[in-house]
Design a protein around this nucleic acid. Structure first.
Lengths: 335, 335
DNA sequence: ATGAAAGCGCTAACAG
DNA sequence: CTGTTAGCGCTTTCAT
């Protein structure tokens, strides 16, 4: 059978309270007793039950992480950085992939509550405001990463998506491109809207007319990016550059170009977003707007921890600046 | 405050036992009472505490997943497939990245026990036999994926690594290559050894002399693969083909080739292992030995579930056959 | 069909 | 410094 605090107490000839105290380093215990208890715990290979201690109101030392898709390198990298920081802070991650499905999101949030996680980190997209509000109302620490929930007072860390879109477009403009297509993610995501807005702003600023036909909405997959790009590239007056709102889409766009016999960057420039490992690996290397993933991971965890410690600070939004990483998928427009 | 079973009982004017019974669909409850209780649970937005119910001996509906690195696409894909199947079966994943560090592995295993997971899936490499044996002794369901622990009676699903290595080498041999280098993973991993053994076997069978200098051990990173390949490619009589024991290493090898001005596949053929998304994305497309990741994920979960249901079947090893996916990184050797 | 009560393993007063 | 005891929220006999 499982060895419990009672077993330890019995063998060490003390009360369970004493054992509890040495486990938690609370109260005051004589050196001698402590060592005896410690030894017995060792001998019996005793592992205090987190479940039991949680029931008395202590932490579970696990936090939930909701992301759209673990198999998507961007989110896998986010998850890893959150995990690392979490490990330092002493907790584990319960990870759930939602596929950006609001039903799954609600289901998982509810599940996390039932499992008494100490907090929840949200990277998944469409979470309904009410679901999040419920968490807040129930005092469950929440922090958001790589997504914005502007209406709610929630701790969040994200990049300036507007600036990112602006940087991408400006880069292409500075290379002389004038017809710049966009392969956007699901526009229900605020971050997507912002990226497109940044793009638009750059164009306006440069005095380039905006052609709404040049913006195509896609899903989150390479295949989706490919299809959207295919449409754009078969337009009568095809764009000479494409801004894809994430690296996966950008790769799909590169595929589309290849199919149509367009060379990158000679015939078509492409810029992505995220700077995942994929951007580094495709050929030609993908010029992309980098999110500081590791840093973002650290920061959400830190925000969450503050919250878990009950500090009643007002919610903060940490907005990091993205950075353009130039590789070889962009070049001057042909004159 | 949190709403408990007592609150529900009070409002519904029944005992907590009755509420418990409607929650768990046990005992027999009149239609009328059931509906009343259900309604109250709804109204109060009551969520039964998994922690409390676990303390009474029921499942936590969470299983631990130990992998080397969540940011590694192969393991991220494994994790996702395990998660999906787990979701169907009603449980969540607690995911831990171990970096193949035995200390972390033990630490995490111990932690999972403290947290009363219902079972553990191991994909991490070096887990000491004693750690696993402890789990088995304590009747904790364990299943292994993509790794072999041959000494122990543990449920496992893995590909035939030997066959995979053999396929990779045979493919290169059939293209006329005779000097075939190997970029191996950490040889403490049985799977690595097997892949190399398969390679050796293919060479022997083909009557090609084996040159141990052609096998370089690396870590799990692109950079490691690059370095190892660089050494191999600078050998006086350099290999015309490379077998890299995973896709990441293969990509490193491709980088090395590029640095040395070698064209792939004209000057150098490269084959990888795993068939992650990376193999599809690099240019040229990487010929690689595919592991049926999704299928593997399903199968471990199913094995684990059998175990959790207490079926005292002897441990099974499901060995799947890998499959060579030919892309454009391999070509006939120059004559 | 329903309820009373004894735990599950641990924590936290409180008493001594 | 150490022990007694009352919960934490739920499950499960066992009565009724």
């Amino acid at each position: 059978m499982k060895v419990t605090i009672y077993d330890v107490a019995k063998v060490a000839k003390v009360s369970i309270a004493t054992v509890s105290k040495v486990i938690n380093q609370t109260g005051s215990i004589s050196e001698k007793t402590r060592n005896r208890v410690l030894k017995v715990m060792e001998d019996l290979n005793y592992k205090p039950s987190v479940v039991a201690s949680a029931l008395t109101g202590k932490r579970t030392n696990t936090v939930g992480l909701l992301i759209p898709d673990l198999a998507n390198p961007f989110f896998a990298e986010i998850a890893r950085s959150v995990e690392d920081r979490g490990h330092e802070a002493g907790f584990n991650l319960m990870i759930c992939s939602t596929d950006n499905d609001p039903d799954k999101e609600s289901e998982y949030i509810s599940l996390m509550r039932r499992k008494s996680v100490d907090g929840i980190i949200l990277a998944s997209g469409l979470i309904s405001d009410t679901a999040v509000k419920q968490l807040i109302d129930h005092q469950i620490p929440v922090a958001v990463i790589a997504r914005d929930l502007p209406v709610l007072a929630v701790n969040a860390v994200l990049v300036d998506d507007f600036a990112g879109g602006y940087m991408a477009a400006s880069h292409l403009l500075s290379l002389g491109h004038r017809r710049i297509g966009v392969v956007a993610e699901d526009l229900r995501l605020l971050s997507s809207q912002e990226r497109v807005r940044g793009y638009r702003h750059a164009l306006e600023e440069a005095g380039v007319a905006i052609d709404d036909g040049l913006v195509r909405v896609s899903d989150f997959t390479i295949e989706g990016g490919r299809r959207a790009a295919l449409e754009l590239l078969q337009l009568p007056d095809r764009p000479t550059a494409l801004f894809a709102c994430n690296d996966l889409l950008a790769i799909g766009a590169m595929r589309a170009a290849k199919e149509l016999g367009l060379a990158i960057p000679e015939d078509l420039s492409v810029v992505g977003f995220d700077n995942t490992i994929l951007a580094e690996i495709v050929d030609p290397g993908l010029t992309t707007v980098a999110q500081p993933i590791v840093n973002m991971g650290r920061q959400v965890v830190d925000l969450l921890i503050e919250e878990m410690q009950g500090e009643e600070k007002p919610a903060r939004r940490v907005v990091l600046l993205p950075r353009l990483v130039e590789r070889n998928s962009t070049a001057p427009a042909r004159s």
